[in-house]
Each structure stands twice: as structure tokens, then as C-alpha cells.
Amino acid sequence: MKLRLFPVLAAALAALSLAPAAHAQRAARPVELLNVSYDPTRELYTDFNRAFAAHWKKETGQDVRIRQSHGGSGSQARAIIDGLAADVATLALAFDVDVLHSRGQLIPADWQSRLPHNSSPYTSTIVFVVRKGNPKGIKDWPDIVKPGVAVVTPNPKTSGGARWNYLAAYAYGLKANNDDHEAAKKFVGDVYRNVPVLDPAARGATTTFAQRGIGDVFLAWDNEAFLALREFPNEGLEIVVPSISILAEPPVTVVDKNVDKKGSRKVAEAYLKFLYTEEGQDIIGKHFYRPAVSEAAKAKYASQFPAITLVTIDEVFGGWAKAQPEHFGDGGVFDQIYRR
């Protein structure tokens, strides 16, 4: 006797798919959060996650495990849109978070007003790192376009820090040429002519400069600059503060669609709010980011940051929504000057 297996199986499967799913008792898993962040925040969030897990345990008695993922800010945004199940996104600039709304429909349009200080718990800026004794005599922006000076900066298409680097150079170009945009473009073009290699993300650029010894000047987040000095004490690297730089505001957000699906909204929101507490701000300062809200943390870490004239993206470039397509979009200013 031969049973006709296929129809029997198909019928069984069909019957089962109608029945309510019966589950084995699943052990309650500890809450898990995935923080998808940009490249240089690795150490910051490793430290911060530990503090938050302790805080959350004390508040609610619940264990929380926070997973981290790091990469170029633009590529990380892309991954979240492609389905990387981030509960919170902590990226290098507002535009990369904006695309989570505009291209992914993952967060509401008004995401940036949900947390204090434009949802940026800290600020940062761009400085120069040079080799021991500053052999090329680099003091300000004009020095890095001189022939024979190799500049290390990552690729603005994928890296957030690289876009701040570019905008800082452009802002200087405008200031030095009475707001003449053509002259500013030419200046930025000259900077990129001196770039031997474009790494995909900020940390890669740091290792290119500090570990592999490529380049004379490294355009870096100031937190990356301090970290490079601390991690390579024998290299004698030096920080040079240019006459003008840009105020970078890396924002954070809960990824609404993901937390609602996972049921992790409460802990995800608490996680981001913790960044604004005294404890959170102190950890931020300890890792060389500039605390944005806590006066105590600002005062405590003020001495480690050099005084520097900062312009904002809003006043010089009309905000990210305008600057991103104009400068970094396909065929934008960066493409024009990098091809030239």
C-alpha cells in the first residue's frame, strides 16, 4: 500500500496554518536593544551601555542587553532602511537620520524635535592631526592645499565625519574669499587633490593615518583626534586647531517602526534619555565629545577642548536638507570637484 504523501502533507499544513499558533513556553528573553551607530562612537557606547544597563536594572529590575553596530554613517542608515532591526539610530548627522523617514518611512518627519537640543546629546567638531613636530608646518586650512601635503579624510559618500570635514573646508573657502562659491569650490577641490586614499569610514581613516603612517595631515572628529593621540603615544601626534571649523551635531532617534514591532519602545526611549542625564553627559565628556546640556559636564571637560570659531551648517549651508543633495548628491559639488 502506497500512501500518497504529498496531498496528505499539504492538507495537514493547510489545517495547521489556520489553527492558532501553538507555542512551546519560551523562556522570557532579557530585553535586547540594537544601537546602530556611526564609526567613532565604539568606545563611547561600550562604556555608556554598561552604565545604562546598570541604571535600567536598578530602575525596573529588568536585564537589558545592548548590541552595537558601527560603520560609516551613510552606510549604516542604508542598512537600517534595508532592514537592519535598529531600536535606536545614533548617527553622525541629521541627514542620515532624515532618510530613515524620507526613504524608509521608519520614523516620523518631526523626529528631531522629540529630544532636547535638536536630538543631539553632544556636539563635536573637526580638527587637524599632524605628525610629530609638525614637519610640514601646518597651521590652518591654506597649509593643507600646498603641493606635497598628503591629506587623510574618509569618503563623504559613506562617512558622516567626512561630510563635516568637507563642509568645514568649504566654510573656510567661503570666508577666505568673501563668500565667493566658485572660489570655495576650487579650494575644496584643491584639498581633495591632496587626498591619497578615501576610507569608507572615520575609524578606517584614523588607522590609515596613525597605524599605517599614510599622510601628513588627518582631518578628524576632535574625539577621534584625542583618541589617536592616546592610543599611539609613541607617535608624537599633535592636534592643530584651524582658524575656523564647523559645529557638528550628531543626532539620535528611536526607530519607531522597529521598536513598535519588537515592543521595545519604553527601554529604547529611556536609553536615549539617559544620554541627557548627568551620568550620560559625563561619559560623553570622558570620551572627548562635547556635552550639550549638562552645565556640570560642560564645566568639567571645558579645558580639554581647544577654543575654536565654529560655524553651523544652518547659517552657512542652509541646513542638511539643502546641503546634502547640493554637495554630496549624485553629480553634486563633491562629484564635480573630485573628478576634476
Binding site: 495547521l16 496554518s17 489553527a19 499558533a21 501553538a22 507555542h23
Partner: peptide
């Protein structure tokens, strides 16, 4: 259907 079948089996 597979989820239901394997869920029941589990």
C-alpha cells in the same frame, strides 16, 4: 504554514 507546523511540533 511551516511556522504553525513547527510551532505545534515544538
Amino acid at each position: 504554514p511551516f511556522a504553525a507546523a513547527s510551532g505545534w511540533l515544538a
